[in-house]
Amino acid sequence: MKLSEIRKDLPTLSNIKFQLGNGTFVPEHFVTEVGITKDFIDCGDVIRNEKIVNFQLWNANDYEHRLKPSKLLNIIKLSEEKLGIEDLEIEVEYQSDTIGKYGLDINGEIFILKRKTIACLAQDTCGIPSEKQKKNLAELPVSQTSCTASSGYC
């Protein structure tokens, strides 16, 4: 989900709810911050700059207040003005057992935290072997699928 999409959705909501992929909801007494970018060097010695809007959800001990859509919209507007945030993809950081990073989507009135995966960005220079192409045994000639001493497939 891009920043422009959440800006469009927030005014239509009465409350903000975030739900993990397993159905668990982020407690309603969270606070957030909005930031951008990450500079790093990968294992192939390539300097990289990742531009992404980062939302951080943190459980506060303040059970009396809830972040309303208008307040989050105001935080986003300030971030655009003061930090120069562009219309980028949103990544959400949320701490449960450990800090997790999630993509963001919306399902009606609920924001869904989508599971993300990581990968090596420099596999060709770091010695990471590429995944071997899998073969469908049903499509191979019988001579290549039978287990005989001369077939080389045992």
Rank of each mutant, 00 (worst) to 15 (best):
D9S: 10
A138C: 05
E5P: 07
S130R: 14
L57T: 03
F40W: 12
L113I: 00
L83G: 02
Q56R: 15
L83T: 14
E131T: 14
G152L: 06
L3E: 00
Q123A: 11
L72G: 07
F111S: 00
D87H: 08
G103V: 06
E91H: 09
V31Q: 05
E109L: 10
I41P: 12
P141T: 05
T12D: 12
N74E: 08
K82W: 08
G84T: 10
V31H: 08
T145S: 05
I6S: 03
L140K: 08
K8C: 11
Q133W: 14
A122P: 00
T37C: 02
L57C: 03
F111I: 00
V34C: 01
K68F: 06
I41H: 09
E50T: 06
R48G: 08
G152F: 00
P27Y: 10
D97T: 01
A122L: 08
G35N: 15
G44F: 02
E50A: 03
S14T: 07
V142Q: 13
L83E: 11
E64H: 07
C147R: 09
V46L: 08
Y153E: 01
K101T: 14
Q56L: 09
K114F: 02
L20Q: 00
Y63M: 07
S130Q: 09
N54D: 10
D39C: 10
P129V: 10
N59M: 06
L67C: 09
S130V: 06
T148S: 03
A60F: 02
A119P: 10
G21E: 14
T37F: 13
I106Y: 12
C147I: 00
L72A: 01
K77Y: 09
T148D: 06
F30M: 00
L121I: 04
Q19Y: 12
I75K: 07
C120W: 06
A60G: 00
L10W: 11
Q95I: 13
C120V: 03
I110H: 10
Q56D: 10
K82Q: 13
G127I: 00
S4Q: 01
F111C: 11
I112H: 03
M1W: 13
K68Y: 05
R7D: 09
Y102H: 11
E89R: 06
L3S: 07
P129S: 12
Q144C: 11
I85Y: 08
S143V: 12
K17E: 10
G103R: 05
Y94W: 07
G21R: 09
N15E: 03
L10I: 01
L72S: 10
F55N: 01
I90S: 02
I16S: 04
R66T: 13
V46C: 00
G44L: 00
E81N: 05
